[in-house]
C-alpha cells in the first residue's frame, strides 16, 4: 500500500483512497477505542466519528506517520466522549434487557477461542477480564500509553507522537501504568487461576 499516494488522493477528496486507509487501520483504531470505552458499541461510535473527523481534517495533516496522526484523533475522540459522559451520564439501551434489568457484560467475554478446553477457556477469560478491569481502573493518561505500547506494540517515539507528549513522558507514564497494573492484578490475584498469579512462585 502506497500510503503517501493514498493520503494525497484522500486530501484531494478521493473517498475511495481514504477508505483504503480506513481498512488498513480500522482494527487498531477500534481496539484503541475499545480499551478506552470498554464497550463495543461506544467504541464503534467513537471510531466512526474519528474516521469522519480524520477525513474532514486531512488538510491539517502535514506528513509524517499517518497512523500516529489517525490514532491521535481516535484518542482525542475517546477523551471527548468520556468528558461528555462525565457531564451527562447516560446508559446505553443495549445494556438493558426487555425486563428493564441491566446487563453486565464482562469485558473480554465476547472473544471466543475455538479449540480450547472449556476449563482453560474459563480461566483465560477470567484473567482477561481481570486485566481489562485493571486497565480500566488506570488513569486515562497511563492507560493510553499502556495500550499503545504494551497492547498495540508501538515504540516510545510513536506513542509520544500519538499522545502529543515527549518521549520522557511516555517512559514515565508507562512505568507507573505497569506498576499500578501489577498492584491491581495482585489485589485480584486470589481470584485468578494459580498459574496466572503473579506471585513469587510463578515468576521464579
Amino acid at each position: 500500500m502506497d500510503e503517501e499516494r493514498l493520503v494525497r488522493a484522500a486530501k484531494s477528496g478521493d473517498l475511495d483512497a481514504f477508505n483504503r486507509l480506513v481498512i488498513e487501520y480500522q482494527s487498531r483504531a477500534y481496539n484503541l477505542a475499545y480499551r478506552f470505552m470498554s464497550d463495543p458499541a461506544s467504541a464503534a461510535d467513537v471510531t466512526q466519528d474519528a474516521f469522519i473527523s480524520a477525513f474532514r481534517g486531512l488538510g491539517r495533516f502535514r506528513g509524517g506517520s499517518f497512523r500516529s496522526w489517525l490514532l491521535r484523533i481516535v484518542v482525542n475522540a475517546c477523551y471527548d466522549e468520556l468528558r461528555r459522559r462525565k457531564r451527562r451520564p447516560e446508559s446505553s439501551l443495549d445494556e438493558f434487557t426487555d425486563d428493564g434489568e441491566r446487563l453486565f457484560v464482562e469485558p473480554g467475554t465476547s472473544f471466543s477461542h475455538e479449540g480450547k478446553k472449556p476449563e482453560q477457556e474459563v480461566e483465560r477469560s477470567e484473567l482477561r477480564a481481570a486485566i481489562e478491569k485493571c486497565l480500566d481502573e488506570l488513569p486515562r493518561d497511563f492507560m493510553t500509553v499502556a495500550v499503545l505500547v504494551d497492547i498495540q506494540g508501538f515504540d516510545y517515539k510513536e506513542a509520544a507522537r500519538v499522545i502529543g507528549k515527549p518521549v520522557g513522558t511516555v517512559k514515565s507514564r508507562l512505568a507507573r501504568a505497569r506498576g499500578r497494573m501489577r498492584e491491581c492484578l495482585n489485589r485480584r490475584g486470589e481470584l485468578l487461576p494459580s498459574r496466572f498469579r503473579l506471585d513469587d512462585e510463578t515468576i521464579r
Partner: peptide
C-alpha cells in the same frame, strides 16, 4: 490480550 473483533467496517460513504 486478544484483539477485539470489530462489530462492523468503518469505511465511509
Amino acid at each position: 490480550l486478544p484483539e477485539a473483533p470489530m462489530p462492523r467496517s468503518f469505511t465511509l460513504t
